[in-house]
């Protein structure tokens, strides 16, 4: 399992949600909300796949956040 911690000041929650939704077919996701972070835990078929999905998901969430005008836009 890999844990990604998206800082709320840097990532828009909607963007993280949409990214998780997009990758939901490729792995299992568990969400948790902390005061400063949005936490996403990824469980995939194997470690390599988990790593790849974590990387792609992070890029996707960052891209969506920037497109939306930043973490604070929403």
């Amino acid at each position: 399992m890999i844990e990604l911690r998206f800082h709320r000041a840097l990532y828009a929650e909607k963007a993280v949600d949409e990214a998780v939704e997009t990758f939901t077919r490729h792995a299992s996701f568990e969400r948790a909300a902390e005061p400063t972070h949005l936490v996403v835990r990824i469980s995939g078929r194997d470690a390599d796949r988990e790593q790849r999905i974590a990387h792609e998901l992070a890029n996707f969430a960052l891209g969506l956040t920037i497109k939306a005008g930043g973490a604070m836009s929403s």
Partner: peptide, 13 residues
């Protein structure tokens, strides 16, 4: 954003 085509980019504080 400029780097997300060639790198995986993660931000944190």
């Amino acid at each position: 954003y400029v780097f997300i085509d060639r790198c995986y980019v993660f931000l944190d504080k």
